[in-house]
């Protein structure tokens, strides 16, 4: 019997946002040296406008502001590190190409997440096809900073690896990323009802997989 089965996880099904844990906003880097001067960084909307006009500097500032977030989302969705650089690169290349079409620059982060989800979806689907065709071994689970959780996380990602991307992504976005159901629907570019149905189906399949 796996550790996973012996120690059921107590889990609050509400997302961090629903629990009032609003993610803090990224604070601009404060230089370690030099005079302590308050620096006011331009907001996303201003940088999006400049980057759309061709400013590489503005785009690189946007990248620096959001790359870690995109990398985190992609890492947990992919369940590993191997394709992370490629996904982050593709996400920002796609974003750059479509920046002018972004209607609400203030919603840049959510927009980037949608692009990243789309990119991860393609890779997971491809990975699944290869596994079906040539029996490729499943990708490893992500590294876990807390050793006590490693066995459970390995089991979880092994089970997630058996799910199609359409089910895996909404479940992971909701239960690991802590996104609300409407946000999951938006990120997966499906209706709210579809998102709920897919999350429920993924939960059911995972439950069967994780049965002792």
């Amino acid at each position: 019997m796996s550790t996973l089965a012996l120690t059921p996880w107590a889990f609050d099904w509400r997302s961090p946002r629903a629990r009032g844990q609003v993610p803090s906003r990224i604070v601009p880097n404060v230089p370690a040296r030099g005079p302590a001067v308050q620096e006011v960084a331009p907001d996303d909307a201003a940088l999006v406008a400049q980057a759309s006009a061709g400013s590489e500097r503005a785009f690189s500032m946007l990248y620096r502001r959001h790359a870690r977030y995109v990398a985190g989302v992609a890492y947990r969705l992919l369940g590993g590190d191997a394709e992370l650089d490629d996904v982050v690169q593709e996400t920002f290349c796609d974003a750059h190409a479509a920046l002018a079409s972004l209607n609400e620059p203030a919603g840049l982060r959510a927009w980037l997440a949608r692009i990243a989800v789309r990119r991860v979806h393609k890779r997971l689907a491809k990975r699944r096809r290869w596994r079906w065709m040539i029996g490729e071994a499943a990708q490893g689970a992500p590294l876990v900073s807390d050793p006590a959780q490693r066995q459970r996380v390995d089991a979880l990602y092994e089970a997630l690896g058996t799910l199609p991307a359409d089910l895996r992504l909404p479940w992971t976005l909701h239960h690991v990323e802590g996104e609300t159901l409407p946000d999951v629907a938006a990120m997966c570019e499906v209706s709210l009802a579809t998102a709920k149905r897919r999350i429920a189906e993924a939960a059911e399949r995972l439950e069967r997989k994780l049965q002792p």
């Binding site: 889990f11 900073s145 239960h175």
Partner: peptide, 14 residues
């Protein structure tokens, strides 16, 4: 239920 721990996200930083 497949219920990950609350702090799973925090421990899965790339």
């Amino acid at each position: 239920k497949p219920t990950p721990p609350d702090d799973l996200k925090a421990s899965l930083e790339p």
